[in-house]
Simulated scan of single mutants.
Amino acid sequence: MKSGKSPHESYYMGDLFGELAYADEVETKPTITALVPGLLIAGIAAMAAAFLSATYSFPLMLAGLLLGFSMSFVAQDARTHAGFDFASRTLLRVGIVLLGLQVTLGQIMEMGLTPFAALIAVMVAALLGAVLFARLLGESREAGILAGGATAICGISAALALYGVIGDKRISHTQFTITLVGITIASAIALTTYPLVATWLSLSDEQAGFLTGAAIHDVAQAIGGGYAISDEAGTVAAVVKLARVALLAPLVALLALFLAAKAKGEAGAAARPRFAMPGFILLFLAVLAVNSFVPVPEQITSSGLIASKAMLLIAVISTAMRSELGLIMQAGWRTFAPVIGATLTSFAAALALAYFLI
């Protein structure tokens, strides 16, 4: 890198509560001109990823990751850093906030107590499975929480939100990138296999919709998996999946509390506990509340979804472009253990609960 940093350092640092700042330039904000090179390159790559996804029915985020990896050499030019950092920080947060337009409290209440309790159980299983697999294979507990939380909620967008809280001091940039790759691959596999399993087991539409909505990571793929079975299953999958999205804020809040308590314990009993809800999560809740109680035009909702996908795609591509491919190759298969554990346990839990409770 031309910036003088070691290959193991990322271009920014994160505190406990998701407030990211430049490691060397905390007081300096980049100008609009400085943002253009990185944003322009990431934007062009995003359009290419969208074209490949639409033309070949390839998962959008996975296409973005692969294009980002193939163009990682551009990050050697320091002029791209400001734009990549802006995309990985600001655009991803705005994209997550806009997800609040896709769910309402009424949709969650429509689930009923039993399906909602079952959904919580699936999410807990994903978290525990990821942490267990991580520790068994020598990975950190934080890596397990990242993979488990992303699997439990909504895939890459949840991973980005959780990583903003965890910070690169606890999870390396390489581990984070590998987690993104693992989640996109696992979600694509789930999309093709879970509907087949539901059909093979002759699950009802409600059971099949719960299985796909509760166990497939990506929002679009979870809902698409339900509709691949039937329209009724697709409707159930949409409600279940959107309920998972709404639970992003509580999960991030609990994670921030956990990290704050852990930091206090490491610093000693005399340390003052610190906790603050990440600002973008508060905005996410505010948008969700407005969408729940104020009629929002369909045009705004659909435009918000498109904008959210675009921003998250650019953020993912920027993350991949900054990645050190050599470090990813050195990391080995064990770094995928948390994603594997989360995927297997969430599928087993969702299938069992759908079969016996729904």
Results as ranks from 00 to 15, higher is better:
Pro295Ser: 13
Thr212Ala: 01
Ser302Val: 12
Leu16Trp: 12
Pro273Ile: 11
Thr235Tyr: 08
Asp231Tyr: 15
Ala186Glu: 03
Phe51Asp: 11
Asp218Ile: 05
Leu40Trp: 08
Leu67Arg: 03
Ala267Trp: 11
Leu160Trp: 00
Lys5Arg: 15
Met47Arg: 12
Ala349Val: 04
Phe280Ala: 06
Ala78Gln: 14
Ala307Cys: 14
Pro297Gln: 05
Leu203Pro: 05
Val236Asn: 09
Leu313Gly: 07
Gln207Pro: 08
Ile300Ala: 03
Thr212Ile: 03
Arg274Asn: 09
Thr212Ser: 07
Ala238Met: 13
Val290Trp: 14
Val240Gln: 08
Glu324Asp: 13
Leu247Gln: 06
Ala45Met: 12
Ala126Met: 02
Phe17Lys: 10
Ala222Gly: 12
Lys2Met: 05
Ser57Asn: 12
Ile317Trp: 10
Leu255Asp: 04
Ser346Asn: 06
Phe51Lys: 13
Ala63Gln: 04
Ala289Val: 05
Glu9Ser: 15
Ile171Met: 01
Asp24Lys: 13
Val36Lys: 12
Val131Ala: 05
Leu105Arg: 12
Ala186Leu: 14
Ala75Trp: 12
Gly341Asp: 01
Leu201Val: 00
Leu353Pro: 03
Lys264Tyr: 09
Tyr56Ser: 02
Ala320Leu: 10
Gly225Phe: 09
Lys169Trp: 08
Val197Thr: 07
Leu196Gly: 04
Pro7Asp: 11
Ser302Trp: 02
Ala263Arg: 04
Ala261Gln: 14
Ser292Phe: 08
Ser10Thr: 06
Ala130Gly: 09
Ile153Ala: 06
Phe73Arg: 15
Arg141Gln: 02
Ala222Lys: 10
Gly182Phe: 00
Leu101Val: 03
Leu257Phe: 11
Glu266Asp: 12
Ala46His: 00
Glu110Lys: 13
Glu206Cys: 01
Arg244Gln: 10
Val316Met: 01
Ala42Gln: 08
Leu67Gly: 03
Leu137Arg: 09
Ala121Trp: 06
Met71Gly: 15
